[in-house]
Design a protein around this nucleic acid. Structure first.
Lengths: 326, 326
DNA sequence: TTGTACGCGTTATCAC
DNA sequence: GTGATAACGCGTACAA
């Protein structure tokens, strides 16, 4: 039960602390016989390095920081993303420090604090915004940062994104192939980077007109947007909803209007999740493997800390899963 | 940019490191004039304590550890719980270390590692099981632990739970009041502590018979359980589903059987979430404010670290929100 | 090839 | 009361 330190190992092995450290870390500078003796003693005593001492001496904390907006609570995939990322970190003996923030200001303050306290080796920024103030700050702060989002929005920071352009292409192909020419889109807020990227991709798509209604994705807002889209004359024959919960709300709203899915209106969700498969009808969805994306981000941030990553890359490609709603 | 240390402050203020530390931490042992001088110098230099050094010297890391099962990814309320908890921790200058585990063994190994590395001051155990091996381990490990769950399942560990008995009472009252005498329950796995507690509460309830189908809550399992419940002769007039996604799947299954909600079968969900309010019909749900519960657990674990908490207590009481499905 | 000293903040122990 | 000193724990640059 008594805590074992390298001093104790050094005493028992009859060498200095420094030699013990070299031996345990596989560094050169000790003879093979000394190394073997030290390793044997350490194993006998069940020695485990004190993490605080390690963080203090080395320049590394083996810790990655992640700040989530409190509003991210709604998104069902966030935790899956975190899980994918943490799996990679754990495999490389890194730990994840998690903080929730009520707004951008609080988040920025958190980054400053972590940087000055030397709490983390790097941070991951999620749900990047258009002209994101966090990106601006982190560019000037002495804290390595990886943006989990489109490299074009990362302002020069390292980034690992999802190829939403490819997702839009797949979605448009699917809809056009089924004869849809006018499509509604009940999207998340326009300042979200993801929404911005898709906007441009939709605008560039040929053979289809997209009518976007940016909302906060609450039930009431989705209902209102759906009614507006379907209330006019030249109504869309398909509607895209951002996220499973919004898709469920959309199905309900369409049903209340006396329309049927997919006969009267087709429905597609951006961002596949478990709930998409259990609605009636089941929801066609486009989305990537969120856990795999999180893993790619985890690899990315480790590369950043290790000096191996530069610039941006795509970590996942969304695919279309066709179900009954389209 | 150059990092400021207390040694530097001591040099500039003309005192020793120790005196600086006492002054900065409001400890007695330095004169008022010395304290003022030290504080002024520290403020001028923008000094911030290095977290690693603080963890090393003190016996505390100001870190709370939380391990989530990878399967918890499905539960929409988990992140909200974490958010509520982290908010309290942040307010007390504590940070949250998050780890995902694939199984109980991996989780237990993680606790051992944290304990031996002195990574955290305490851990929070969520989704406690009947005869939980984690509880058994943590009781013998030198690592303070708080069980987020029923004190009766905590095996002597400190616990902060949800009063599910009160929730069952509210639910039974509601159903009996509407004339239901036979109720189906598509529950989560029977080895979950939460399910176990509700089982006993349902068994003790008078005036109502509950037919439980324990499932893994996947879409297919919910569908099968619903069909079994509604296929027989003496079929229940109401069904309780564990969780919003299961409720959505249940609605779909009931619809496919040609039955209507709530006219033919009433539906109630255990565990309110955003999706319950946007289905058609909207789902009656019983559940507590998960963020508030998380906050209570956060307070609890801080009390545990501070030596102020003993035994178990209830951190939240579920309430019934009646919507259109019952 | 091995030993020594230093960094970092807190705190127990000591000298005045 | 007031303040200095040393120890904690590890990694590593440097001296021996």
């Amino acid at each position: 039960m008594a805590r074992v330190t390298i001093t104790e190992i050094a005493r028992r092995a009859g060498v200095s602390k420094g030699a013990v450290s070299y031996a345990l870390n596989g560094q050169p500078g000790v003879s093979a016989s000394t190394r073997a003796r030290v390793l044997r003693v350490a194993a006998e005593l069940d020695w485990v390095p004190n993490s605080a001492a390690r963080m203090l001496s080395g320049a590394r904390t083996d810790t990655i920081g992640l700040v989530l907006a409190r509003g991210a609570t709604r998104e069902p995939s966030v935790l899956e993303f975190v899980a994918g990322m943490e799996t990679v970190l754990a495999r490389h003996a890194q730990v994840l420090l998690l903080r929730m923030a009520s707004g951008v200001d609080e988040e920025v303050a958190g980054y400053r604090k972590w940087a000055s306290e030397r709490r983390v080796d790097a941070v991951v920024v999620v749900e990047v915004l258009v002209d994101d103030p966090r990106v601006a700050l982190l560019g000037s702060l002495d804290l390595p940062a990886l943006v989990a989002g489109d490299p074009g929005l990362a302002g020069g920071l390292a980034a690992v994104g999802v190829d939403d352009g490819a997702g839009v292409t797949a979605l448009v192909e699917h809809l056009v192939g089924r004869g849809h020419r006018t499509v509604g889109w009940v999207s998340g807020p326009a300042h979200l980077g993801r929404v911005h990227v898709r906007e441009r991709a939709f605008a560039a798509a040929e053979g289809i007109a997209v009518r976007q209604h940016a909302t906060d994705l609450t039930g009431g807002a989705v209902d209102a947007a759906t009614r507006e889209l379907l209330g006019g004359d030249d109504r869309p024959t398909a509607i895209v909803y951002d996220g499973g919960p919004a898709g469920v709300a959309g199905l309900s709203a369409i049903g209340r209007l006396g329309l049927r899915v997919p006969d009267d209106v087709a429905v597609v969700v951006w961002g596949d999740s478990a709930v998409c498969g259990v609605t009636e009808p089941a929801l066609t969805a486009v989305g990537c493997d969120v856990a795999a994306y999180g893993a790619a981000v985890g690899e990315g941030v480790l590369g950043l800390v290790g000096g191996r990553l530069r610039g941006g890359m795509m970590g996942a490609v969304p695919t279309l899963r066709v179900r009954d709603s389209s």
